[in-house]
């Protein structure tokens, strides 16, 4: 069952085409990794999926969910480093979808936030200030916020950037766990090795898609061998 499909999507910044003719389909439970080098258009494509930038041509369609109901894990910004906000406040802000024009959080929003905090094992940090957490803990908090925004699809933008190897491993297995529980995942990454380790679909971008398909097929392509040094056999 498809939850998202892209057909012939092209995107541009100031008439400068950075993504051209991308087509793919995402099914419930998929774990798709968009790989590519810097400037390959993978982030722009992701912004298109989130509705932050409009494509110049092609169609992005959602089935059974609204474009706003994507749990987005953006890259951290400088502003957040010293931001005074409790973990609970941050997670709760994930419940702010455009559904209804409610002013205050409802009880079920607070329960949802609490549920996702428990799910990601950050219960003990709930009252702590976000700025005093480690990088890995902060990513968990932002992931919990993303889960409040969506129960079906999360989009991760280079989620392990700046994390040490142990935290990286933890975060990857946490994401895999969520995926096994039925959550569809789209991850933007330049780390091809972990892409083929965790993802079941790969979209390799270099302005246009160089490869799109199942991971098993990707492993046999030259481009994958070049990116991983040919040492991965899954």
């Amino acid at each position: 069952m498809n939850i998202l499909s892209c057909t012939g999507v092209s995107m541009a910044y100031d008439s400068h085409v950075v993504v051209s003719d991308v087509s793919f389909a995402l099914e419930a439970g998929d774990y798709m990794v968009i790989v590519g080098e810097n400037g390959s258009g993978k982030s722009t494509l992701m912004k298109g999926l989130l509705g932050l930038i409009k494509p110049i041509s092609g169609k992005i369609e959602f089935y059974g969910l609204n474009q706003y109901e994507i749990g987005y894990l953006p890259q951290q910004t400088v502003v957040q480093k010293d931001f005074p906000a409790s973990v609970f406040e941050v997670v709760l802000s994930g419940c702010l979808t455009t559904k209804g024009s409610k002013i205050f959080y409802r009880r079920q929003d607070k329960e949802l936030a609490q549920h996702n905090i428990a799910r990601l094992g950050i219960d003990a940090l709930k009252r702590k200030s976000y700025r005093n957490l480690s990088g890995g803990q902060q990513q968990r908090v932002l992931l919990a916020r993303a889960l409040c925004a969506s129960e079906r699809l999360i989009v991760l933008d280079e989620p392990v950037n700046g994390l040490d190897p142990i935290m990286t491993g933890d975060l990857y297995s946490l994401i895999a766990e969520l995926n096994h529980a039925g959550l569809a995942v789209i991850m933007v990454s330049h780390d091809v090795k972990s892409a083929v380790q965790f993802g079941n679909k790969i979209l390799h971008m270099e302005k246009k898609p160089l490869f799109y398909g199942a991971k098993e097929d990707y492993l046999h392509t030259d481009i994958c061998k070049r990116m991983t040094g040919g040492e991965i056999y899954a």
């Binding site: 509705g51 987005y72 953006p74 502003v79 802000s93 994930g94 979808t97 455009t98 916020r145």
Partner: peptide
């Protein structure tokens, strides 16, 4: 939401 993370806020509409 906007002060903490503008891109996330935009993504949620």
């Amino acid at each position: 939401a906007i002060t903490f993370d503008e891109s996330f806020a935009r993504a949620t509409g």
